[in-house]
């Protein structure tokens, strides 16, 4: 199941674990990323809490936790090479995997059609 947030994150949900990243639209708006800071595995985060920070040449931006859950894995590859987020935002540029406290809460997020409408 693929879901989106109004804060321009995508979630690929398999069982009770969501792989989370930022959308191609967000990556394009941010420009070339030069730094990514990710949460450590084991961190519990509420929906809306700051989960990660990304920095372009110009500015720093927060990436929010899209649902309540616990971080189970972070993508070291984008820490080592932030440009991966720009080149493959919805693939190799994923940010973290989140074990959802309540998988059914994902139903309240946007589907792909609704997200496309949001950024149109």
């Amino acid at each position: 199941m693929l879901k989106f947030t109004e804060e321009h994150e995508w979630l690929k949900i398999e069982g009770d674990v969501a792989t989370v990243g930022i959308t191609a639209h967000a990556a394009e708006q941010l420009g070339d990323l030069v730094f990514v800071e990710l949460p450590e595995a084991g961190t519990s985060l509420d929906k809306g809490a700051t989960a990660a920070t990304v920095e372009s040449v110009k500015a720093a931006s927060d990436v929010y936790c899209p649902l309540d859950g616990e971080i189970v894995e972070s993508n070291q590859a984008i820490v080592d090479d932030p440009a991966l987020v720009n080149s493959d935002p919805q693939g190799a540029g994923w940010f973290f995997k989140l074990k959802l406290s309540d998988p059914s809460a994902a139903n309240g997020l946007l589907d792909e059609a609704a997200y496309k409408e949001l950024i149109a």
């Binding site: 420009g31 070339d32 040449v57 110009k58």
Partner: peptide, 12 residues
Amino acid sequence: PVQYPAGVMKEH
């Protein structure tokens, strides 16, 4: 203009 399609990094 803050940037053109090339982007800040390439422009710099």
